[in-house]
């Protein structure tokens, strides 16, 4: 048995222990070396694997403890404004280019008023207002999927989100739920100043303002074109001659996949990830909030990345969210300086 191989393998395995448990790692490693010396080289692989397993178990226990103790409530409260702003921007993108109908359908009325309400509530840190707005959006976006409003022809439903690209209606369901949970995490009696509220309101309206600049002035809506077949194809001919009918502009709202919107949302997410990753030591709640939003949109994001499927691209947003969560949780534990999380002498290894 070459001592160098033994030392190298056991040292590598001991690196699975977290830094805060270096002393424990050394004791376990040296214990394993004693065992390999006594039992022979056949014990080396078994001992090395056991060291690695023990280190990973310690790491898992620490991570679980840190994640449980992470500042989830402030994180949920922190995501209300950006999430409400993003949802208002999404609905604006869906509403402006295609809608040419008055009065509003109940779906659009709920979506637009809900997102505006949520944004105002987030600016004022008013939990029930945000909750009401989020609930309105959730109901409006989810209603067609449980059959509400689809008793008419599919194209005539008050709100329906075609799934040919990204079904933004379905994609907004989990973020709307997350917004509702975030609303409940807002403080019951927030300390708000007029300046702060105005700043938050302006910040929240900024994405929609940019969207309006992009979308307006919109093109005149195109009339719908219908092909009417009055008779069966003539004998020997495979195609019947249709009568082309030009109708009024398409009056029902749709939210089709929009490349600029998806690109903007992707860039916003990327910026949020980078900024909150860098600031996670000082503001762990921001990193946790970004992770939560990433998880809530992981499915449509992966769908967009792949083109028409989710696997395996969904690993990317979920993996980034996981890394953000761990980083923020560790940072929160370190910043709180909680002595109870450091290893106790009684729980030390052999």
């Amino acid at each position: 048995m070459k001592p160098r191989l033994r030392d190298r393998l056991t040292s590598i395995a001991a690196r699975t222990f977290p830094r805060s448990h270096r002393g424990d790692a050394r004791v376990v490693r040296d214990c394993a070396r004693d065992a390999v010396d006594a039992r022979g080289p056949r014990a080396l692989a078994r001992e090395s694997l056991a060291i690695a397993g023990a280190g990973l178990r310690v790491r898992l226990a620490m991570d679980t403890r840190d994640v449980r103790g992470a500042p989830w409530r402030p994180a949920l409260a922190a995501l209300t404004l950006p999430l409400a702003a993003a949802l208002l921007c999404v609905w604006t993108f869906g509403f402006l280019p295609l809608y040419d109908h008055w009065p509003l359908g109940e779906g659009w009325a709920l979506l637009l008023s809900g997102s505006v309400l949520a944004l105002i509530g987030a600016a004022f840190a008013a939990r029930w207002v945000v909750l009401l707005g989020a609930a309105a959006m959730f109901v409006a976006a989810g209603a067609p999927y449980v059959g509400y409003g689809t008793e008419k022809a599919l194209s005539g439903t008050p709100t329906f989100f075609p799934g040919s690209g990204v079904d933004l209606g379905a994609a907004s369901l989990i973020p709307a739920l997350l917004l509702a949970v975030g609303a409940l995490s807002l403080p019951r009696r927030p300390q708000r100043s007029l300046r702060t509220v105005l700043d938050r309101l302006l910040l929240g309206l900024l994405p929609t303002a940019v969207a309006l600049v992009h979308l307006l002035p919109r093109e005149a809506p195109q009339p719908t074109t219908s092909f009417v077949y009055d008779e069966l194809p003539a004998r020997g001919s495979s195609v019947a001659k249709p009568e082309v009918v030009f109708g009024p502009p398409y009056e029902f709202p749709q939210l089709t996949a929009s490349k600029p919107l998806l690109t903007a949302l992707g860039i916003a997410l990327l910026v949020a990830v980078v900024l909150s990753w860098r600031a996670s030591r000082t503001r762990p709640e921001a990193a946790l909030a970004t992770a939560l939003v990433l998880v809530s949109v992981a499915w449509p994001l992966a769908w967009t990345m792949h083109g028409y499927a989710v696997w395996p691209q969904i690993i990317v947003p979920l993996g980034v969210a996981f890394a953000l969560t761990l980083r923020a949780a560790h940072a929160a534990r370190r910043s709180s300086g909680s002595a109870e999380l450091s290893p106790e002498p009684a729980a030390s290894p052999p």
Binding site: A32, A43, P349, P350
Partner: peptide
């Protein structure tokens, strides 16, 4: 193995069944 023993002793220390006595370095091994 050393790793399994580590887990067992950690659990038993939490339960108050064993206590750490001392640490020594013998031939460079802790």
């Amino acid at each position: 193995t050393a790793g399994t023993l580590y887990g067992a002793l950690e659990r038993m220390a939490r339960q108050g069944l064993v206590q750490m006595d001392r640490e020594e370095t013998v031939d460079g091994r802790l």
